[in-house]
Simulated assay, not measured.
Amino acid sequence: MESALSEIEFLALSANRVAVLRRLVDGRHTRGDLAMATGASQATLGRILRDFEDRSWIERVDGGYTATATGELVADGFLDLLEIMETEVELRSVVRYLPTDAIDFDLRRFDDATITVPSGTKPNAPVSRVLDLLRDADEIRAFSHAFNEGSLTVVEERVTDGESTFEGVFSRRALDAVADDAGLRRRLDSLLDAPGTNVRVREAEIPVAVTVADDVVHMLLRDEDGVLRASIDSDDPIVRAWAHDTFDRYWNAASPVDEDELVH
């Protein structure tokens, strides 16, 4: 194990080594190609190529270099680990708030996700992020334990103006909370009456707050006390498939909204 760890360290301690190996896995490159792509000096590049040849990770081919089978093996494993660590660093500040029990996809699917956190000047930044997505969406789906005023307002305005369609599944508590406020109740009634709307209510709780705005999946992240801590959104196709499958599961277990049964 120690020798394997030392080889991992050998790669990890040099961004230039990683960059050179990554390019040689893609095909043959000359020293000039590699120097231009990496910015490494000729002396540094020479040492890297010699070290790689000594390990049989690369070989000379037609005046250039290319990765060997073992070089490709090393690159695949190391670059996979690098991708995992890059994703972990991005998620580190919010992982404690991710509803991992409700997520069944590889967290590496969040490698290009947008993470939005509250700040002193923008305490509502995560909600603002989803509102921006809603304002540009033609098709909106949501399943959630809450229906905040901002989202309700934007969705109601876009659907009643014929700019969007909306499907939602909400917990009973979420809809009752909206119906208990006179102003929000009017917006909710307007939304429910709009031809582009289809909403169902679930008696059991929904443990996540997810909005799918066209191709983007947005999730609000709260702590155990219900305090909004962040949001994360992604257009990854696997994340999107998870969101639609989960929506369909909640939808099939929910009932059409009876406005007379909502809290007055």
Rank of each mutant, 00 (worst) to 15 (best):
A243G: 11
A43E: 12
G71R: 08
T211F: 02
L192H: 05
E156N: 13
L131H: 01
N198W: 15
L34G: 05
H264K: 04
A113W: 06
R22Y: 11
A137C: 05
D161N: 14
G120S: 10
W242I: 05
D33M: 00
S234D: 06
R172G: 14
L175W: 13
F170T: 01
D101R: 13
R172S: 14
G226W: 11
D161L: 10
P99K: 13
I58C: 04
L49E: 09
I84Y: 00
R109K: 08
W251S: 09
V94K: 02
A182T: 14
T197Q: 09
R200E: 02
P195L: 11
I232E: 00
F110W: 11
L21M: 05
D161Y: 08
L49I: 07
L262P: 12
A213C: 08
D51W: 03
D225F: 07
V159A: 14
E83H: 12
A43Y: 15
D101Y: 15
E139Y: 14
V216L: 15
L5V: 13
E259T: 06
L13V: 12
D161V: 07
L13H: 09
L152F: 00
D76T: 12
A142P: 01
R55F: 01
A182V: 14
T121E: 11
R172Q: 12
R47H: 07
